[in-house]
Design a protein around this nucleic acid. Structure first.
Lengths: 338, 338
DNA sequence: CATGAATTGTAGAACGTTATACAAAAATAA
DNA sequence: TTATTTTTGTATAACGTTCTACAATTCATG
């Protein structure tokens, strides 16, 4: 079969406009050396024939005007904000963003990125990649890259855009202590590999740094949740049901903070009186009942548009790496204050 | 600049394996006419040189092994299930799915689809497209297409995969009536265009059909929510606060059912005693407190894998349209039964 | 064995662009 | 006017595959 709708090509446009193929190409890329008159004529022909450039053909020698975005978890409600920001940052540039999903699995992520490179994409925005650093650098050497949610301000091969996770964790922890928490615990996420580039690891480090600043022993103060929800609830249950249950909980994400509420309720532990909870990402607003969830607000939109900006610069020719770091904001709601 | 990592080409593989370029191409596509010995040698060379096919070049004459997925709302928690199903259905086929986001705006959606066609994608899966039918048919004539969440079992240009929305609505409504609801109302979604192909419109029709079957007047029984959350809450507030408030609510989605809870609580209306609520999609499970949300379960995963199956068949040469229709399942929880 | 059929491999055009190199024309300077 | 420079447009070789047509070889059949 094969639907062959016989596309209009640059050649037919050239014939219609009575100019050379090269001239049409120039107009298309608005490259140097076209008179206003010729541009006018060519554009008229393109409209008339409903010409659309053939991306694969362009990719053979030039650019594909395609930006690949790596996203690992489609279910994380924070990520759409980033995507919106990227779209806005790319608006009017002619670049089309396409999303690939790595499913949080290194081999899948690796295959996906390779396939984006094979497709001659012009740039890559990776959100919280799982790939190890040398691999990221190998990729960045092949294609302009900006990485979001990856703390490494000394990296030279690619740009990064982040909110300061370490600082955010300190703010949350300081708040919990100020609210009178004497036995604060952080609920983090168990990850196979978790070095200092990881935002969650940075939050752990920030949490512990703030405790130390207050002279509190940090040992055994971090508990680990999992992607598996049932298992996570079990972990929380064990924690809240222990002999010395925490009176303040700093959660690595809002989602796991919700699980905390569920378990606390089942154990008749009152929030915030007996347990103050702070989440991360500020993904839930007024929808949560009966009290709001305190959380660290960090605009995904801003992260996305900044990443787009950095990437466009890099595609444009910048080779020196840039690292944008924004400041998160603590939003206090009923879950951590009466 | 331009990072030119000088890719290994088919030509170099051919030289290394001491065969013709055509032979390597054949191996690559496992096309007819290659001996086991030759395949072996060529594959060894490909491994040795770490060859990767250049997708743009392939797209010039052959296929790109890329499937485009149109998604309109990244925030809808139901959609990741579909995507997982698609991924599973595509596993091992060599096709790479890439996601485009239409932002629920017709011009954006249109530009996106065109750009997928420009990129010579081999097939398209569209989830709840906003484009009008003639436009969809125009697209499907250019590229193999399967549409999800689009009710039109007479369509000949493309395949569809759906859960029966009309039936689901009838099941929900029947249940509400059986629970004793005397004044049932449906909370639907206001859409600019909403013909019978629309899943939400089908739910409205199913709702009314079931009412009629019970001899209940259908007029003024459908209220419309909006994408804007604040506005939606206002609508719900007005509805629940009216002189004849509903005692049963069939919501077009689980998300808007949550808003219902929020408003009901603020008005001291008890769920389910004074107001029974049924949602749609079964996106929330045990996370919801203090009672679970009754909802219609329809496996997005199944929808996705079915769409992938249909699309692969169509890419493989089928030209006759097929329409898969699955049966949803009503899950009763605390929001509609004591 | 001779003949035809099937199998295995190759040469080379084609796909639709971009980009380089250059010719022609127009503008500017002397 | 004549040189010189600048602007405008063209011809054509890539780019890395696929695919058609065909040649060479091996296999089967009588």
């Amino acid at each position: 079969m094969k639907q062959t709708g016989k596309r209009v090509t640059i050649k037919e446009v050239a014939e219609d406009a009575q100019v050379s193929v090269a001239a049409v190409s120039k107009v298309l890329r608005n490259s140097y050396g076209v008179s206003a008159k010729m541009r006018e004529r060519v554009e008229a022909s393109m409209r008339k024939l409903d010409y659309r450039p053939h991306t694969a053909a362009r990719g053979m020698r030039g650019k594909t005007y395609t930006i690949g975005i790596l996203q690992n978890d489609l279910r994380n409600p924070y990520l759409p904000n980033i995507f919106d920001g990227v779209i806005e940052g790319l608006e009017g540039t002619g670049y089309q963003p396409l999303l690939g999903v790595g499913q949080s699995q290194v081999p899948l992520e690796s295959a996906l990125i390779n396939s984006m490179i094979d497709r001659q994409m012009d740039g890559l925005i990776m959100i919280a990649p799982r790939l190890p650093e040398p691999e990221l650098e190998r990729i960045a050497r092949q294609i302009p890259t900006c990485v979001i949610a990856y703390h490494h301000d000394q990296e030279t091969a690619f740009d990064t855009a982040n909110f300061d996770s370490h600082l955010g964790a300190r703010m949350a922890t300081k708040h919990l202590l100020a609210q009178g928490s004497r036995n604060p615990v952080m609920l983090s996420l168990a990850l196979p590999e978790s070095d200092a580039t990881n935002v969650i690891r940075q939050r752990e480090l920030g949490f512990m740094a703030e405790l130390e600043a207050h002279g509190i022993e940090t040992e055994n103060r971090v508990t680990y949740s999992h992607f598996d929800e049932a298992r996570t609830q079990q972990v929380i249950h064990d924690l809240l049901n222990s002999s010395e249950p925490p009176d303040g909980l700093f959660c690595w994400s809002d989602i796991v903070a919700l699980d905390t509420f569920t378990v606390a309720e089942s154990l008749n532990i009152r929030v915030p009186e007996a347990l103050a909870v702070v989440g991360y990402d500020n993904t839930f607003d007024q929808r949560l009942r009966p009290f709001g969830l305190s959380s660290l607000n960090q605009s995904g939109h801003r992260l996305g548009s900044e990443a787009a900006r950095l990437l466009l610069e890099r595609i444009g020719g910048r080779t020196k790496a840039e690292h944008s770091l924004f400041r998160p904001e603590l939003i206090v709601r009923g879950s951590s204050a009466t």
